[in-house]
Design a protein around this nucleic acid. Structure first.
Lengths: 117, 117
DNA sequence: TGATAGGTAAACCACATGGTTGAATATCAG
DNA sequence: CTGATATTCAACCATGTGGTTTACCTATCA
């Protein structure tokens, strides 16, 4: 007797549990990237990186546009938003209105955040 | 050359990727629960549920207080907050100030949310 | 004391995961 | 056509995961 649950949460949280994949998402936040471009920063075979991309795609966090032999990936923020929404239920444990408002303003005013995956 | 990354994110997101564990957290949002109480709703052996609790504990999402033979678990919201904070960088993709403010007010005014894990 | 209840530990199982290599498939460029 | 580039696919491997069962330890209670 398990309650209703957002059907994507399992896949999305699993996808986010790997640092390589989180770094890929971060990279995609700067715009479309090919699979090779996504793979380049990692000490890993292209096939390995390609599998990570496929996990992200399977979770709906990334979409793919094929142009010739190049596959361009784009961040699908909707699924990220869905995952973040899961936390809202718990926000009452760590925040009050002012805390949240402050977080909003900080997140808006800070465009880049070095050293983040 | 992987960037700095919050050391807990791997474990936290992994812990959250399982619906049983998310349901346990949800249950703990109502207050301390023993391991048996946490296990009760699931069609699963106690040992199996106990392992889920241990995963949550390992991720820092739950802490444990032993009283006699009973282990009481408590939600550790700080780690949840840490995970939610990861999403802030991406918020610019799906929200503006007004959207966020609305989300805040909704989350505050709605205390219980049926059908959620 | 003895039985029972709460919980962990250990061994085991089937399957998933993260990685590899090597081959296959397209596409582009000369 | 030839060769290089972009990418996936398939097979493989070691390890991790979610689950079980059995055994064990420690409290509690009659």
């Amino acid at each position: 007797m398990v309650e209703y649950q957002s059907p994507h949460l399992d896949a999305v949280f699993h996808a986010l549990s790997d640092p390589t994949r989180r770094a890929m998402l971060h990279r995609l936040s700067g715009g479309e990237q090919s699979v090779s471009q996504l793979a380049q920063p990692f000490d890993m075979s292209l096939a390995g990186a390609s599998k990570h991309v496929k996990v992200l795609e399977g979770a709906g966090l990334v979409s793919r546009r094929v142009d010739g032999r190049t596959h361009y990936c784009r961040l699908e923020a909707a699924r990220l938003a869905e995952a973040q929404a899961w936390f809202r239920y718990y926000e009452r444990f760590w925040s009050n209105r002012l805390d949240k408002l402050q977080a909003i303003l900080e997140a808006e005013d800070r465009e880049s955040y070095a050293g983040r995956d």
